[in-house]
């Protein structure tokens, strides 16, 4: 944000001047900064009052928590009144609240178009991608919380490390030992096979499914819907070959793999990319059974 740039230069002059005793000029600058902060606070308050009185605003209740700041260590909800504009998403509203009222409000976002997967949040009691959730579809006040079943780092930001570990545990990359004959020949996938894995390739690693899953909440070693879906994407890819598929199935059918799934369908309900997660998990269960019961 442009308003922060002058402040940063001010700070750097401050560090340069640090070795000298406080000069008159510095005192003046400090006073100026203090006044500017006061003015900013006052402006924010006025904006907030105006918005609260306005009819066409949305009321947001946002979870706030910061273990490093005194006074924010006790989790609480802050209320923001944001002017509603047509097509406004939860992410737009949060950004408005951050830019206008409280620049310390923290959340992840990047693409703003349901591609990067950074802004999965708990909105009105459901895991949603904030940038893909229309305010007009929600009941007010809109309550925004960080994803459940993950450690909160700050405000709406949770620690995703465990989720990424589970994703990596299934080796989420193409591996094969079956190559086409000609040295320069392409490794083609037929249309039917591409169609089969199409939905499973759409995952954006947002973690919404994992957060919604009751089993994952109770069993930290459970691979979780997203990782199993990743495994499905490669296990079902015919180009990987038979031997690789055996290796994939071994990962999938381990103790904390597919068999933990109790078909609650929560993951399928929340996935912003509409991946039929339960369907894929169920299909892998059947693959695993077929693989182990060799009557035919």
């Amino acid at each position: 944000m442009s308003t922060q740039i002058p402040k940063q230069t001010e700070e750097s002059t401050e560090t340069e001047a640090e070795t000298q005793p406080a000069s008159k000029g510095e005192e003046r600058r400090a006073e100026k900064r203090r006044r500017a902060a006061e003015r900013r606070e006052q402006r924010q308050e006025e904006e907030a009052e105006k918005a609260a009185a306005d009819e066409s605003t949305v009321e947001l209740k946002v979870f706030r928590y910061d273990p490093q700041v005194e006074g924010k260590q006790e989790p609480r909800f802050d209320t923001f009144h944001v002017p509603f504009t047509k097509g406004m998403t939860v992410l737009d509203a949060l950004m408005y609240a951050r830019d206008t009222y409280d620049s310390s409000l923290t959340f992840r976002h990047s693409c703003r178009q349901a591609v990067c997967g950074s802004d999965a949040m708990f909105v009105n009691g459901g895991q949603k991608l904030a940038c893909k959730t229309q305010i007009s579809d929600l009941e007010e006040p809109v309550r925004v919380e960080p994803l459940p079943h993950a450690e909160v780092t700050k405000d709406l930001v949770v620690d995703m490390e465990h989720f990424y570990e589970q994703m990596e545990a299934v080796e989420p990359y193409f591996q094969t030992d079956e190559y086409p004959d000609g040295e320069l020949e392409e490794q083609r996938q037929d249309r039917a096979n591409r169609e089969k894995i199409k939905m499973s390739t759409r995952c954006i690693w947002c973690g919404a499914c994992m957060s919604s899953c009751n089993i994952a909440a109770g069993d930290n070693e459970y691979l979780g819907p997203a990782a199993i879906n990743k495994a499905y994407r490669f296990a079902m890819d015919e180009r990987e070959g038979e031997e690789m598929k055996q290796k994939r199935l071994e990962i999938i059918e381990q103790e904390h793999g597919v068999w933990r799934c109790q078909t609650q369908f929560s993951c399928t309900e929340v996935c912003p990319k509409d991946i039929p997660l339960t369907e894929h998990i169920q299909e892998l269960k059947r693959e695993a059974v077929k693989n182990n019961l060799k009557f035919w």
Partner: peptide, 23 residues
Amino acid sequence: MSQSYNRGLIEDFARWREFEAGM
């Protein structure tokens, strides 16, 4: 590893609202 952050009653109530048919 990922230990859930206790948001007390707030989280418990929220999770009930979240439940859908399959759950």
